[in-house]
Structure formats: structure tokens, C-alpha cells
Design a binder for these strands. Structure first.
Length: 793
RNA sequence: GCCGCGGUGCUGGAAUUGGUAUACAGGGCGGACUUAAAAUCCGCUGGGCGUAUGCUCUUGUGGGUUCGAGUCCCACCCGCGGCACCA
């Protein structure tokens, strides 16, 4: 039976709005459930069919939890700072704020048309001064705790975006946003000391209910490695050359040293005129400085380097003098930017030694050189014969005694480059004063808002477009009252999303960031759903900020997101990524117009495993429409039906556990099975049908409201989730599989709980089984109650 | 190179965690209704042999464990994602 989805969906959406069905209670006796989507960047393109997959899933769960009696917080907002709005402003001269407003209106309309149950009274927007006041407030707090500092550092510079980038924003040496090659450039930067939290970020990962892949990515990104700092004296200078190694046990095999081209020692020794091959060294350093990150890693196949002729290092254990080289395979930014090279036991050092004909000396027994495994120590003076694992400890102990080394831990994680030389971001709330240095804006003067500018173009000189606005830049130093200049760099796109989940809990509070009572009721986020692409960006940054907020007493939980799920991408037809240039973008609008929002919702949940990537297939969409129409054609009556009731209860059990486990596709298929069964009946009792509607309601809320309204006046979404009765659900007859030698031969229907002997008796009397047993001796009988009987001959 | 995930009909995908492989849906084929088409409804739909009750083969490949393997173990092939000179 056909139904008019447009009329019906409109009717129920306005009903939900006027009845405030989705309003979250502020503080309630009910248990809470905080169900969060990663909020979108409201782009000018609008939603495509892939976005709602996660939103529908959280919506299904929100309805489900609401029906189960939870006070559900399910909010939505906008992550609206960032480059696209700014680039659009450059192109068209429209203020980014205008473009953002327009895009938000469009996004909101699209989300509403899907029937998502957001509590819009809690909507937030990261570009709203009332919001970013608190983003700036957190920055000021970090500054005061010494976690935000200024420095001139070689940073990743994107020549096309004309701004510095964080390490996390550089993918394969390319800008994450525009795919330009990224270069190193020395610029004055604001940096956040995320490294101070490295251990806690690693530690607390363990207890999170997150996908293993994401946890592992964060673990690798933090990259903790235990080892030792060892000091090699430079013979010709009063300098210590510090290195980090995880293998102090191989120290007697160190036949040369390698420092990064940007290492201090290079400049110092050149200055002191100690280097014999001056020009060669200068050339090499220049060359590697000019290479982009990509080129430096692309050329990784073959090692390059230059010896610092005239210098030598002294091995602190053996006293041996060894040459010092520069090579760009050693990174200036990891450890101490220098290594002791043990070519016999390290792949890279081995390649270097082979190329430049340097000595390779085995000090660990084991396989073929370069041998990187453990083994007995040899050619290592008094440590000979020790296994490498304990020799390592012994050597570090001795170095510690002589103050020539110590145990230490190193991380791959670097501090977070936090400033961007662009317009459309939160101004960094700092005032530079000649007398007092960098001074934070007083908390009472927050927010520092963005001034209007005429030109949004980045200057490209390493300064933000804000630096041209004298009226805005010139201000008074909050400390001494003298003249000061505002910081003109802005925060990166990720700043606002680091803490937004907190603001939904208390969106209008202008006294504090969040009311503590509300915070302790609603936090942590129980379920967080979004794409996996944020694994080491947003998901790491927000954990860092959250831990900081925990330390200063703003939040009561150590971690923000208890459970995380990543939705798989929806690809274009044929499995290629949807994109404008390929012309294969499907908009939810057209699907909703043609088939209805409930059909879109059902299809997105039915296509495949939630976390897997799936291709979009419009032919599959019609199946969902047919399903709803079949439900619509079921005849309702009063007739009791034990068998159908049993199936209903099995379906309740299945749908309940499937929703809890994100197996939406099989939940829907079991609802289809029940529907097919109901359609075969003359009529279906009202009670069974009503429970069925409740199970379908989270997936198809508009459609089920309409059918429900024939029985009840209140919203079906306010009804309570049906409970499952084990006694009703269980069948009293079961099929038992009869096998001979593990092969299926027959099945028999018997009473539940029947004994082995009885089954054997029945089975042996069956012609189909007898045929296979004839002339054979039964060696063994395997019996699984209510399931299977196997004769082994 | 290292780490993680995966490989099941024509397609998207199920499989109670070791117990009838291919649920559910799409597509295809045949039929009903119709002047006709769409929609709808009914039936069939992994391969081979067979009119058929049926037999047999089949979950990337090869081996193994087991009464019994898509599921567990070993080796390999292919695809996807991440990291990548991290000392």
C-alpha cells in the first residue's frame, strides 16, 4: 500500500517540534546517555549521502536509549572556522561569517529533513564569540601553566595555504588540505606542549572502548621508546655530543657518529674553523635544507652524507676515537638529532657504512649482518659473554656512574604547532609588550574578536592578514598599561573542536565554561561516532585538552569519549570515492524527495557492516521502500497467535542486541523476516503489531508514528522499548540435524530437551539415515542437545 | 619494510562464535493482473550429474587439527587502511 512520505514526514516533524519530544532534561533522576556525532564543517557543498550514515546510527541509538528510559543528550553544532570559508571570502569578497551562516542554514535544513532528533536548543558554533571566548580562555589557562609557548622553529610550511601546519596535518610530505609539497621554514610560532602529556595520553588509551586500529595509530604516533642518552665527547672541542639509543649494548660496535644537518655542532665547528672540508659541508647542509619533507623521504633509498673532517668523537666506554658524519637520514627533531652508528646491528647505519666504506664491527652474536636481534655480546671488553638484554642494563649503569649517560625515554610525538598565519580563526589572546613580553589578555576582556578586514589574502610573509589592521593591533598592555601589540596569528582549525562536547552540556553559560554539576551528570560522552580520518588529529588533540581541563578542575573525567565507533565511507557507484570532479555525488535530498527520509535511514543502516566501506546503490534503496509498503499492508485484528508471538520475542531479543552492537543491518533483516511472516497471516493481533512498530521506530520514525497514531495519541518515541520474554521466545520444538560421519543426512523435528537415546532411536528408524548406516559399525555418537546428532563409523 | 583489517553467489552482505554455508535485500528468469507498460503479487535463482526422491563439489590457494572448519593452527597469494630513515 502506497503512502505519501512527503505529507507524512512533514506532519510528524512538526509534531515532534511542538511536543518537544527530543528535548534533553537539564538534570534528571534518570540515567543519562550522551550520544555524540563528530560535528561537521558546514561546507558550501552541503551534505552528500555519506555524511548521514553516522548521524542516522547515533539517531537510532538515541531513540533506542530514550525508549529504554535514559535521559539522552544528542546535540549538533558547527565546526566553522577554517580555510574553505576564508578561501571563499578571498574569491568572492563575502565575509566568511556570511558564508558560514548561509551554509549552516542549508546543513540544518538537510539534517532536519532526515528526521534527526537533535535538541537544537543546544546548538553551538565554534565561530560564535560567545563560544570562542572559552576556547581563548583555555588558551590563556594553558599559557599561565607554561603549556603554551612562543618560539622560532623550523615548521611545516604550506606554500599554497601560506601558513604553517602541525605535524599531524602533513600527510606523506604533503599538505593535508591542498596536497602541496610542504617545506621547512623558520617562523615565530605558538606551540602547545602536548609532549608533556605523552605518557598519560598513552596510558589512558588502554581503558577506552575504542577501535583497536585507532588506539594503535595513536600509540604509534606518540611513539614511546625506552633507551638511553649517551654522551660522546668531541675531542677537538669542549662539546658533548649527546645521542639516544635503544641499544646501549651495541656501543662497542659504534664505528662512527652521525649528526643531522641542522645539528648545532655543524655550525659551531664551522665557526671555530675546525672543519677541513668546509665547502663540502656547507653545500650538503644547504642542499638538505632546500629539500621538501617529501623529497627527503623519497630519496630515502640511498643514504647520503659528508664527513666532518677534522672532528672526532670519543666512545665513553672504550675510549676509542671515531669519525663524525652529517647525513640527513638522521632527523634533527628526534632524540638529540644525533646517533652513534652501529653498522653491524642497524639497517640504516649498515647502508651508510657500505656506501662510504666505513668499518663494520660485529659485537652481538647472531644472524647475518646487519643483525638487529638479541644475542651474546662479543668484542665488548668486560661485557663479553653477557646476553644483550642484561648487558644493556650493565652498560647504562656504568655510564651513569661516570655521568656519561642515563636511562631515558623518547617520543615521536612533537609539540603542537598551534598558530596559523590566516584570518578566519580564533585570535590568539596574547598582547606583546616591549617591557613585559608576551602577556595574556585578561580573562574579563575575553573574547578577543576578529576585526573586519578588507582583504583576506594571506600575506605569505609569515604574518597573518590581521597584522595590517593597525586599530586592532595597537592596544594597551594589561600588565604595565604601556603600549602593546596584539598577537596576529590565529588558532588552527582544530582548536574549537577540542572541547565542544563540553559546551553542549551547558551551551549558554556566560559565567563559566561549564557548570560543574551538569558536567558531572553528563560526562563522559558515552558514545562518539565519526570518521576514522581524525585518528591522530582531533581525537588526540581533544584528549590532550581534556586532560588539561581535568588538571585545572574544569572536568571530572580523565577521558572525554568512553566509546568510539568509526563509520565506513559510502563510496560512489562502482566503489570509487564520491567527489564533485567525478560527478558521482549523491545528495540525500534527491533520495528523500523520491523515497522519503525513512527509506534513506533504513538503507543507510542496511547496506552493510557499519564500520565497512560500501558502495552506494540506488537499486538497493527501492527494497527499503518496498519493505515499508509491505508493513503498511498488514491486516490488523485481534487473533492470538502463539507461533507469531514467539517470533516477535525472538525478534525483540535480536533487534535489541543488534542495536547495542552496531549491527543495524541484521536488526533490519530480522524485522523483515518478521514482516514476511506477518504478511502470510490473515490478520495480526494489535499487540504484536504495536511491539513490532516500536522495534522499527528508531529506524523509521515518521512512518511508524503514522501507523502508531491509529492506536495511541502520544509519540511512539515516548513509548517504552518492548521487553523480551524468554519463555515466550523459546520454541518447544526444535530441528535436530542428523549426520553420518559429519555429513548432513537428515533433520528431525522433536520436543525441546529430548535425550540422546531418544534421538538415536528416532534417527536410526529414518530411512535416509539407515541407508548410510547399513553395514557399518558405529564407533561413536556425538550429541549436541537440541542441535545435532552425529554417527561416527 | 613494519603494524592493523579483510577475501563467502551475478551484486550489497548473513552465519547463534566449531554444528544444515549463502539469512535479508538487490538484480535476473518465469508466471498472474493489464489493451500495453510501470507498480504490485506468486514461483525459481551457487556449480556439476539427474525427469526426479537425490548424489556430489563449493567460503582466495595449499596443508593441518577435529566426529565435524567460512569459523581454530601453519605457510602462501591478493586487496584495503595506517606508519615509515623515530636510532
Amino acid at each position: 500500500m502506497k503512502y505519501d512520505h512527503k505529507k507524512l514526514e512533514k506532519k510528524w516533524r512538526s509534531f515532534w517540534e511542538s511536543e518537544e519530544v527530543f528535548k534533553t532534561e537539564e538534570l534528571s533522576d534518570k540515567p543519562k546517555f550522551y550520544c555524540l556525532d563528530m560535528f561537521p564543517y558546514p561546507s558550501g557543498k552541503g551534505l552528500h549521502v555519506g555524511h548521514p550514515r553516522g548521524y542516522v546510527a547515533t539517531d537510532v541509538i538515541s531513540h533506542f536509549k530514550r525508549m529504554k528510559g535514559y535521559n539522552v543528550l544528542h546535540p549538533m553544532g558547527w565546526d566553522a572556522f577554517g580555510l574553505p570559508a576564508e578561501n571563499y571570502a578571498i574569491k568572492t569578497g563575502t565575509h566568511p561569517r556570511k558564508a558560514v551562516e548561509k551554509n549552516i542554514d542549508h546543513f540544518k535544513e538537510q539534517l532536519d529533513s532526515i528526521g534527526l532528533s537533535y535538541d537544537w536548543e543546544r546548538e553551538i558554533n565554534t565561530t560564535d564569540p560567545e563560544y570562542f571566548k572559552w576556547t581563548q580562555w583555555i588558551f590563556v589557562k594553558m599559557f599561565k601553566k607554561g603549556l603554551a609557548y612562543e618560539g622560532t622553529l623550523p615548521i611545516n610550511w604550506c606554500p599554497s595555504c601560506k601558513t604553517g601546519l602541525a605535524n599531524e596535518e602533513v600527510v606523506d610530505g604533503l599538505c593535508e588540505r591542498c596536497d602541496s609539497k610542504v617545506f621547512k621554514k623558520d617562523i615565530r610560532q605558538w606551540v602547545l606542549k602536548i609532549t608533556k602529556y605523552a605518557d598519560r595520553l598513552l596510558e589512558d588509551l588502554r581503558d577506552l572502548d575504542w577501535p583497536d586500529s585507532i588506539k594503535q595509530m595513536q600509540e604509534n604516533w606518540i611513539g614511546r621508546s625506552e633507551g638511553a642518552k649517551i654522551i660522546f665527547k668531541v675531542k677537538e672541542m669542549d662539546e658533548n655530543l649527546e645521542v639516544f639509543t635503544t641499544r646501549p649494548d651495541t656501543i662497542f660496535g659504534a664505528t662512527f657518529m652521525v649528526v643531522a644537518p641542522e645539528h648545532d655542532l655543524v655550525e659551531k665547528s664551522l665557526d671555530q674553523g675546525l672543519i677541513e672540508n668546509n665547502t663540502e659541508v656547507i653545500d650538503y647542509v644547504e642542499q638538505s635544507r632546500r629539500k621538501s619533507d617529501l623529497e627527503r623521504t623519497e630519496l630515502s633509498k640511498e643514504k647520503t652524507g659528508v664527513e666532518l673532517k677534522g672532528l672526532s668523537a670519543i666512545n665513553p666506554m672504550s675510549g676509542e676515537e671515531i669519525p663524525i658524519w652529517i647525513a640527513d637520514y638522521v632527523l634533527g627533531s628526534y632524540g638529540y638529532g644525533a646517533v652513534m652508528s652501529v653498522p653491524a646491528h642497524d639497517q640504516r647505519d649498515y647502508e651508510m657504512a657500505e656506501k662510504y666504506d666505513l668499518e663494520i664491527r660485529r659485537v652481538i652474536e647472531g644472524g647475518e649482518i646487519p643483525y638487529t636481534g638479541e644475542g651474546k655480546m662479543i668484542a665488548s671488553d668486560k661485557f663479553n659473554g653477557l646476553p644483550s638484554s642484561s648487558g644493556r642494563e650493565k652498560i647504562v649503569e656504568e655510564l651513569e656512574k661516570n655521568k656519561l649517560g642515563e636511562k631515558t625515554v623518547n617520543y615521536k610525538l612533537r609539540d603542537w604547532i598551534f598558530s596559523r598565519q590566516r584570518y578566519w580563526g580564533e585570535p590568539i589572546p596574547i598582547i606583546h609588550c616591549e617591557k613585559c613580553g608576551a602577556v595574556p589578555v585578561s580573562e574579563d576582556d575575553l573574547p578577543v574578536t576578529l576585526p573586519d578586514v578588507k582583504k583576506y589574502e594571506p600575506t605569505g610573509t609569515g604574518e597573518s592578514p590581521l597584522s595590517g589592521i593597525d586599530d586592532w593591533v595597537k592596544t594597551i598592555c594589561p600588565e604595565c598599561g604601556g603600549s602593546g601589540k596584539r598577537e596576529t596569528n590565529t588558532m588552527p582549525q582544530w582548536a574549537g573542536s577540542c572541547w565542544y562536547y563540553l559546551r553542549y552540556i551547558d551551551p549558554k553559560n556566560d559565567e563559566t565554561l561549564i557548570d560543574p554539576e551538569k558536567e558531572s551528570y553528563f560526562m563522559p560522552v558515552d558514545l562518539y561516532v565519526g570518521g576514522a580520518e581524525h585518528a591522530v588529529l582531533h581525537l588526540l588533540y581533544s584528549r590532550f585538552w581534556h586532560k588539561f581541563l581535568y588538571d585545572i578542575g574544569v572536568v571530572s573525567t580523565k577521558e572525554p569519549f568512553k566509546k568510539l565507533k568509526n563509520q565506513g565511507l559510502i563510496m560512489g557507484e562502482g566503489g570509487i570515492k564520491m567527489s564533485k570532479s567525478k560527478g558521482n555525488v549523491v545528495s540525500p535530498d534527491e533520495i528523500i524527495d523520491k523515497y522519503g527520509a525513512d527509506v534513506l535511514r533504513l538503507y543507510e543502516m542496511f547496506v552493510g557492516s557499519f564500520e565497512d566501506e560500501v558502495p552506494w546503490d540506488e537499486e538497493g534503496v527501492v527494497g527499503m521502500r518496498r519493505f515499508l509498503e509491505r508493513v503498511n499492508s498488514i491486516r490488523i485484528g485481534e487473533k492470538e497467535d502463539r507461533e507469531l508471538l514467539g517470533l516477535l520475542h525472538r525478534t525483540i531479543k535480536k533487534v535489541t542486541s543488534d542495536i547495542e552492537n552496531f549491527k543495524f543491518n541484521t536488526a533490519i533483516s530480522s524485522l523483515m523476516v518478521l514482516t514476511n511472516e506477518m504478511r502470510e497471516r490473515e490478520e495480526v493481533s494489535k499487540d504484536i503489531f504495536k511491539d513490532f512498530l516500536k522495534l522499527l521506530a528508531p529506524f523509521a520514525p515518521h512512518f511508524t508514528e503514522e501507523l502508531w497514531s491509529k492506536f495511541e495519541r502520544d509519540s511512539i518515541l515516548n513509548s517504552s522499548w518492548p521487553s523480551y520474554d524468554k519463555k515466550v521466545a523459546e520454541k518447544n520444538k526444535v530441528f535436530i540435524i542428523i549426520q553420518v560421519d559429519g555429513r548432513f543426512r537428515d533433520k528431525v523435528e522433536v520436543n525441546k530437551g529430548i535425550s540422546e537415546n531418544e534421538v538415536v532411536e528416532i534417527a536410526e528408524s529414518r530411512e535416509r539415515v539407515e541407508k548410510w548406516l547399513k553395514g557399518k559399525k558405529i564407533k561413536k555418537i556425538i550429541f549436541v542437545e537440541d542441535k545435532l546428532l552425529n554417527f561416527v563409523t
